[in-house]
């Protein structure tokens, strides 16, 4: 599904990712954990094609296709999705209008208005959102929790093949975390893969990962099963630094 090899990325001359490699198979959920500054958000932005980052080396393949030269919208149409840590505000554009435009952009055939309406209602119900929410302007004046729910709502509407979730759990209270996790689990199946990028182990209680990777200084330094996340929770990132810090700098 997703294959990243020897990825080197710079922003404004500073190297953030230093030879990162990762393979995500069809239907797999991967968690990438790491301390602040390890390059987690850079990875998610680069995967989606943010123009600000310079990829200096390495490859990204999605479903066997090299996506390196593709714009974000082209990647979205292939089935990639990024749940943003800090989604932008778009004043004057309602959530409903945005969802309609987005869904019709990734679909080959436009959805009839009534079907679209029903779909929005259905997905909002899963996310436990008030129907009035659809009329609010996109992310404008949203609380942190509302923004995250809205990201997952978009994911449910777009039904991507691969979702990258950039610290979707940060700043969420336990109720919101449960709802957000429920949204992700809704899509879980043999045709859906996800990369959950997080600082904490907490979200992995609700979305059980198949694989856990630990990121440090722009690389994945160790990988394992879901036990690795528990181990990390127990020992903290200092343990990672002691254990793998030298390897990361070599």
């Amino acid at each position: 599904m997703l294959k990243i090899d020897n990825l080197h990325v710079e922003i404004e001359g500073g190297e953030i990712l230093k030879g990162l490699g990762l393979e995500v198979g069809k239907g797999e959920i991967h968690a990438i954990m790491g301390p602040n500054g390890s390059g987690k958000s850079t990875l998610s932005n680069v995967l989606m094609g943010h123009p600000r980052y310079d990829v200096t080396d390495g490859t990204i393949e999605f479903m066997g296709e090299d996506v390196m030269e593709l714009e974000a919208d082209e990647r979205a149409r292939l089935g990639m999705f990024l749940a943003f840590q800090y989604p932008s505000e778009v004043p004057g554009v309602s959530v409903a209008n945005f969802l309609r435009t987005a869904v019709n952009s990734v679909r080959e055939k436009e959805l009839a208005p009534m079907e679209m309406y029903r779909l929005i209602q259905e997905k909002m119900k899963i996310m436990q959102m008030d129907p009035k929410f659809a009329e609010r302007y996109l992310n404008e004046g949203f609380s942190g929790g509302e923004k995250k729910r809205n990201e997952i709502l978009q994911m449910l509407m777009l039904e991507p093949k691969l979702a990258i979730m950039d610290e979707t759990d940060s700043g969420l209270d336990i109720d919101a975390l449960q709802v957000v996790s429920k949204g992700v689990n809704e899509l879980r199946g043999p045709e859906f893969s996800a990369v959950i990028i997080t600082h904490y182990q907490r979200i992995l209680r609700y979305i059980e990962p198949d694989h856990v990777h630990v990121m440090l200084d722009g690389r994945i330094v160790t990988s394992g099963g879901k036990d690795l996340a528990l181990q990390l929770e127990d020992k903290g990132y200092d343990w990672v630094r002691q254990e793998f810090g030298s390897a990361a700098q070599s």
């Binding site: 989606m48 943010h50 974000a72 979205a76 932008s88 778009v90 004043p91 990734v106 777009l158």
Partner: peptide
């Protein structure tokens, strides 16, 4: 750039993303 990237990541072309921001602005 971030605003455009956000909209484009949902499948909107750059032109459509720009138009959406503008239409929202004059709403």
């Amino acid at each position: 750039e971030d605003q455009l990237f956000y909209l484009m990541s949902r499948g909107l072309s750059e032109e459509a993303a720009m138009a959406m921001v503008v239409n929202g602005f004059i709403e």
